[in-house]
Design a protein around this nucleic acid. Structure first.
Lengths: 256, 256
DNA sequence: AAACGGCGGTGTATATAATGAACCGGACAA
DNA sequence: TTGTCCGGTTCATTATATACACCGCCGTTT
């Protein structure tokens, strides 16, 4: 693998449960030699992508990320545009809403508005959504650039739950359904007891760049509830696409 | 230079004025061969640090940054803690307030609250503040870990304006003044017509991790105005440090 | 105390991965 | 047509990343 990519993969080892990691820990998790990992970390620290706790000597994501993210937001205000949409969506459906954008090989969560109900779906901050195992991923892939879609289909698909599609045929079916309906449904394909409804967000070229989704406890899903979610989600996704400067393809149809 | 660092330096070529850049442009600006730059960009795109516009083929900062920044914020809520403090500071002083954290070799702006006055200081999003040329940088360096301070003093100091300290002695003086006063003053050392007042933000080990600053048009600075700024900034900086889990060294004194 | 194991970090010979010059096809201008 | 600049590709050369062995340190166990 390319060295730069290997180094950047280290960043993905940090998550909600592991906000800081030691050198040996990072080496073990990444399967790379300690000495190499240390050099990579120092290189990344030089630009603020990671930083080291002076006391524990552990590493964490750096303040440079905040600066770069702000810079991106200034040019392409995504979070700012999505936040009110997500909040309205959560309020109107009573369920947790989230938005994600393609970041590398998967979707990265860039905004969440939680439901206020006592039982609700809760998402870890910065969660990565696999393209084949989530409603968001399916909705995105169904409307992504064809070459990208083909890449996803060609991947070896890891099973996450019992309902995760692991064969090319199964995934292809789900994608076809999403293309026909204009949105994707996923019952416990990523997280048990979670039912996801997702619609694609489009870029200026009319291909998907991300997804807008509502996640509900599976137990609360009924035909009526599903209908509410879909009819609320549709205008929200449209608004989000337009606000981000995207173009909705003329062929898109939302089928209840 | 290390390959990873060279690749990450490409990220710093994006700024407020240049939100997207072409391949040749990046190669020219970085002084690296096109082929190499392209490989680096592709590696960074694989983790979402950058992304390519499908139409213009230009590159911009990627959505992965948003995810990683959110992840960092979840573990170390910096922006969220600083925003209300900055807003209060801007309101109480009538001037633009900003916060920055060490990110690599310099301070990266992580929060801004603009003054509402007709004449005010405006900061580019994601601005990088050199340690030797800004009030924030001096305040930070004065209270940073001694070895880091020594590194800064050992650097070749580039002049930004006529007032920028460029000799080790001049910088050393400014640092000593800041240490004695508990804050730094900088009259047009970075941007002409801008007067900066900055206090350090401390980490858990009692050394500076960033700075909180108020930037005023030089023309508006008077003894009374300066006094207002300092007396408003002091409790704000203290609050910010504590809210971020930092420890204020017992030796710190604020001298009006 | 002594021995141990894990930690963060360093030095260096080896081998792998980064490099850049030359090149391609396409878009646009003169 | 010719020329120029663009994004992108190829491939021989070589500079750079790599991993092993090793260091000192610290806390726990024996």
């Amino acid at each position: 693998m390319r060295t730069v990519e290997k180094a950047l993969r280290l960043l993905d080892l940090f998550d909600d449960q592991h906000p800081d990691l030691g050198l040996s820990e990072l080496a073990r998790l990444s399967g790379v030699d300690k000495a190499t990992v240390l050099r990579m970390l120092n290189d990344m620290a030089a630009t603020g992508l990671v930083e080291q706790d002076t006391q524990t000597r552990h590493w964490r994501l750096g303040a440079g990320l905040l600066r770069l993210a702000r810079l991106r937001e200034a040019a392409f205000p995504v979070s700012r545009v999505l936040t009110p949409i997500l909040e309205h969506l959560a309020q109107a459906t009573g369920e947790t809403a989230h938005a994600s954008l393609l970041a590398g090989r998967d979707l990265g969560t860039v905004g969440v508005a939680e439901s206020t109900r006592p039982t609700r779906v809760s998402l870890d901050p910065g969660l990565v959504l696999p393209l084949h195992a989530t409603a968001s991923g399916i909705a995105f892939t169904a409307f992504a650039r064809p070459d990208l879609r083909e890449q996803v289909l060609a991947r070896t698909l890891s099973g996450v739950t019992h309902a995760t599609p692991t064969s090319r045929a199964a995934l292809s079916d789900l994608i076809a359904q999403a293309q026909a309906r204009g949105y994707a449904l996923a019952d416990q394909t990523f997280e048990s007891e979670v039912y996801g409804v997702a619609m694609p967000l489009f870029g200026p070229d009319g291909h998907a760049v991300g997804a807008l989704a509502v996640a509900s406890p599976s137990s609360r899903i009924s035909d009526a509830h599903l209908k509410t979610i879909v009819t609320t989600l549709a205008p929200a996704a449209k608004e989000a696409t337009l606000a981000m400067g995207g173009r909705i393809p003329a062929t898109l149809k939302i089928v209840l």
